[in-house]
């Protein structure tokens, strides 16, 4: 994939390291000359110094037809203009903008930014989840929290351990998308068996998540 990273500091550095490992083609633009040098020196990649809201900067950097552009400036509006310019003038397929102000998430989407990420917003949401659900349950939210993916480890003493899916009396709106039984990945059907040590990947709405986790974690003793 061709990925453009516009601005940002340590988060940009982190992503660049990761994308280099994954062998993506990177285009890096930074308006901070010092930090641009730092990124360039530590990762051995070219960094274009310039203002990414200017069409000629994006042109010079060669962002044409990139698969993704990620705008990481601390100035929300700069990110907006960078994304819109990249999309409309350079046919960048997908633009991701970071915003500081959580109120701008919906607005940016309405104005045509494909994906908007707000750390304050995510932080708030994840603190909420962390406090709700025990720590060994991992969750990931998608589409601004309309969907959550829960990863759940099945322990020996869970009531559903050792049962076949069709024999389990599930509450409504439960979907086990995947069973991970190292190294196997099983897409379950009614005849699939759930074993202790399995990791279940469950897709649900955030509303149902707590209920679902509670159901799966019912222990043998609890039922008596």
């Amino acid at each position: 994939m061709k990925i453009v990273i516009a601005n940002g500091r340590h988060e940009a550095d982190f992503m660049i390291k990761k994308f280099i490992q994954d062998n993506h083609k990177l285009v890096i633009i930074n308006s901070d000359q010092h930090f641009g040098h730092y990124i360039s020196n530590t990762n051995h990649v070219p960094v274009l110094f310039g203002d990414s809201t200017k069409a000629y900067t994006l042109d010079d950097a060669g962002v044409h037809n990139a698969d993704v552009l990620i705008a990481l400036s601390t100035d929300d509006i700069e990110n907006y203009v960078t994304c819109i310019t990249a999309k409309r003038l350079f046919d960048v397929k997908r633009c991701v903008s970071v915003v500081r102000n959580p109120k701008r998430v919906d607005l940016f989407k309405k104005l045509g930014i494909d994906s908007v990420i707000c750390s304050t917003y995510l932080l708030g949401e994840s603190i909420k989840y962390e406090s709700l659900i025990e720590s060994f349950t991992k969750t990931l939210s998608l589409e601004n929290d309309k969907i959550v993916i829960t990863e759940l480890l099945i322990e020996d003493d869970y009531l559903i351990a050792g049962k076949v899916i069709k024999n389990i009396d599930f509450p409504p709106r439960v979907n086990i998308s995947c069973i991970f039984r190292d190294p196997e990945v099983i897409i379950p059907n009614g005849d699939s068996l759930i074993k202790a040590g399995d990791k279940l990947i469950i897709v649900s709405t955030p509303k149902d998540q707590e209920m679902i986790v509670k159901f799966f974690k019912t222990k043998v003793d609890d039922d008596e």
Binding site: I77, Y80, V81, I84, L107, K110, L111
Partner: peptide, 13 residues
């Protein structure tokens, strides 16, 4: 940039 952003808000929203 601010001018452009506000103009888009006024037009599209």
């Amino acid at each position: 940039n601010v001018n452009l952003f506000i103009a888009h808000i006024c037009f599209y929203v």
